[in-house]
């Protein structure tokens, strides 16, 4: 479990980093938190000839909250995003998802943008981005492009990032007023990748009745699966019809069996966990701060 030989680069600016990545092309790989890449290299399942360590570029280490949402820089650690009070106020789903990401020690080092780029279909943060909406900002010597959340996850372990590009930041949209969210998952052990996980986002009217409801599911498809489940809301707007919900989910998910769970069980979990996540999200959806004040 020792990596193959590689060259190590430590750029100090984004410009320097993208120059390097441009020159290295397929041979270059970005090192941020290293929580997935380093084990893969140690097991020689990945053997990049060049590592470009972006941890020494100060401008990437940012978490900024704006009216539009939360912008997370490439080297901002999961733990920092998780604990950022302003980010939580803007989009509680960030923290709700992050507490399910592995263990605190891994969150201290792993990065949120790294997790997005890694595009593991069992990972939480891609689902959070997919559900909240937003984009990933990719930089190369050719310039900068924003890829919308809906287009960013291409397949298992495959994002829209091209060789030569550096993901400099991701922006998670702030949900509309009177929204509530929740992240519910079942893992074999605390901190493991989920057998199935569901992020839910529910928006209500002034009376608390659900107006929109969407979920994003992990570990049941090649990418996070976003499903509009508004059609499963009961007429009163206060509860969900579990059968209709299951029907909507089944039309969207495509679970596979592995050594930890059968496809059938994952499908069942999707139904159960989506109902739980939606109920919890609905409980969290309340009047806005301004409405409470008035």
């Amino acid at each position: 479990m020792k990596p193959s030989p590689f060259s190590y680069h430590r750029p100090r600016t984004v410009e320097e980093a993208v120059e390097l990545l441009g020159a290295l092309g397929e041979e270059g790989k970005v090192l941020a938190g290293g929580q997935s890449l380093v084990p893969l290299m140690s097991m020689r399942l990945a053997a990049p000839a060049h590592l470009v360590d972006v941890n020494h570029i100060p401008e990437l280490d940012t978490v900024a909250v704006t009216a539009a949402g939360v912008r997370v820089g490439a080297t901002a650690r999961h733990a920092r995003v998780e604990k950022d009070a302003a980010a939580y106020d803007a989009a509680p789903l960030l923290r709700q998802g992050l507490v399910n990401v592995a263990h605190p020690t891994i969150r201290n080092r792993g990065t949120t943008v790294g997790s997005l780029v890694h595009a593991d279909p069992s990972a939480e943060m891609p689902a959070v981005l997919a559900l909240l909406g937003g984009s990933v900002e990719l930089r190369s010597t050719a310039g900068s492009r924003e890829v919308a959340a809906a287009d960013f996850f291409v397949g298992p372990m495959e994002s829209a990032l091209r060789p030569g590009e550096l993901a400099v930041a991701a922006t998670f949209h702030r949900p509309p007023p009177r929204s509530g969210s929740a992240f519910v998952e079942l893992a074999r052990r605390h901190g493991d990748y989920a057998l199935c996980g569901v992020a839910a986002l529910v928006t209500t009217d002034h009376d608390g009745a659900v107006t929109t409801a969407r979920v994003a599911l992990i570990s049941v498809g090649p990418v996070p699966v976003v499903v509009d489940v508004g059609a499963a809301v009961h007429g009163t707007g206060t509860a969900f019809d579990t059968e209709r919900l299951a029907g909507l989910l089944d039309a969207a998910i495509d679970p596979e069996a592995d050594i930890h769970a059968t496809a059938e069980y994952r499908r069942h979990l999707a139904h159960v966990l989506a109902a739980r996540a939606l109920t919890e999200a609905h409980e969290h959806a309340g009047p806005t701060r301004d409405e409470r004040a008035s």
Binding site: L195, H260, A261, Y265
Partner: peptide, 11 residues
Amino acid sequence: ISPSELFDLRS
């Protein structure tokens, strides 16, 4: 026994 297997036994 895993949750998946218990689910299977129940089914």
